[in-house]
Design a protein around this nucleic acid. Sequence first.
DNA 1: TATGTTATGAGTCAAGATGTCTCGTAGAAT
DNA 2: ATTCTACGAGACATCTTGACTCATAACATA
Lengths: 190, 190
Amino acid sequence: MVNTESDPRFQRSQQAILSAARELLLEKGPVAVTHAQVAERAGVGRATVYRHWPRADELLAEAMATVPMPLLANPTIPTRQWLTRELTTLARQLELDDVRAVATTLASTALWDQQMDARRAQFATILADRLAGALATAQVRGEVSLAMPGRDAAALLVGPIYYRCTIEHGPADSTLIETSIAAIGTWTAR
Amino acid sequence: MVNTESDPRFQRSQQAILSAARELLLEKGPVAVTHAQVAERAGVGRATVYRHWPRADELLAEAMATVPMPLLANPTIPTRQWLTRELTTLARQLELDDVRAVATTLASTALWDQQMDARRAQFATILADRLAGALATAQVRGEVSLAMPGRDAAALLVGPIYYRCTIEHGPADSTLIETSIAAIGTWTAR
DNA sequence: TATGTTATGAGTCAAGATGTCTCGTAGAAT
DNA sequence: ATTCTACGAGACATCTTGACTCATAACATA
């Protein structure tokens, strides 16, 4: 055998461990992601978990990375419909337990863990960049006249949804989304 | 001695323990709030911490409660100025490390801890109630014509600030605040 | 000041968690 | 069939956790 990682046994264990870690994060929170608990749930030996991830926090980080976070798809025309669609998707995603778990865990651990902070920054940048980019293009096309910098628009669009889902713990309905879209500037009638 | 809790030694230990727990939460996160670490930092015996708080999570909860969270003061007239003032205060507060630490810790632990979830709900309810109440009054007075239910207005006002501070990790400036205030409805010129 | 009270710190102890290592075995490549 | 290697099981020392004891010093009361 040439490469260790191509071994099916290695792959199986790795996946089982990642799944177990993700389940534990979802059910009991990040503190529950320990070598012992992950091993038991994954049905593998404790030593195997240590072999794959010597440190528990890196296993947690990798398990979190397996949860698909809601980023935004490429902008389409008309931009306002694209916004409605993407923000609605984002809201539905944030209402899922695992996505919300990853998001809130990321936000809190980022304050004390450098690796997590980098991931938080990356996530925030992607969202802001894509929104700002789409809005800038829309403005050039005359679809909208923004009342603020593109950066603020991102916070104004995503913030209410994020707050509603993570703090108020309620559904982000279409009223909320449409209002925030209308708030960022003047949309030209079509 | 009649009452145990009136003993100055008891008071001193209790305060030292609470302060130490709060410092640890701020510097190293909620996982660092253990009996042993708190005892060492507080300069008290490990047994003393157990005597005051048999469970570490309750100590953490109580330490978090000592951090003054930004609620909203009683509404004043004109409502729009009150909103600007209160939301700016809230933004300044959320930019403080300890407040942000408590807020994000609350949001994440609430997903797996019932006690924390109750506190999150209480916090969200207070904010939403006060905002909705103030806005309803303002609408009766003819100050504003709301474009949405009062509940949505709360998320629309607080959400962007919360998102900016906790996810984007940047300052919530006046542009962001003013835009969100303008977004919730039509304000009558004065 | 004298005296009884009590919270405390230091220490002990058992139980459990954690990290490391070895070894026989079974699964995989050739 | 043979070699290689990831694996599970378990042993092991170390650290952590939670509960307990006891002498002491800080406290209230007189």
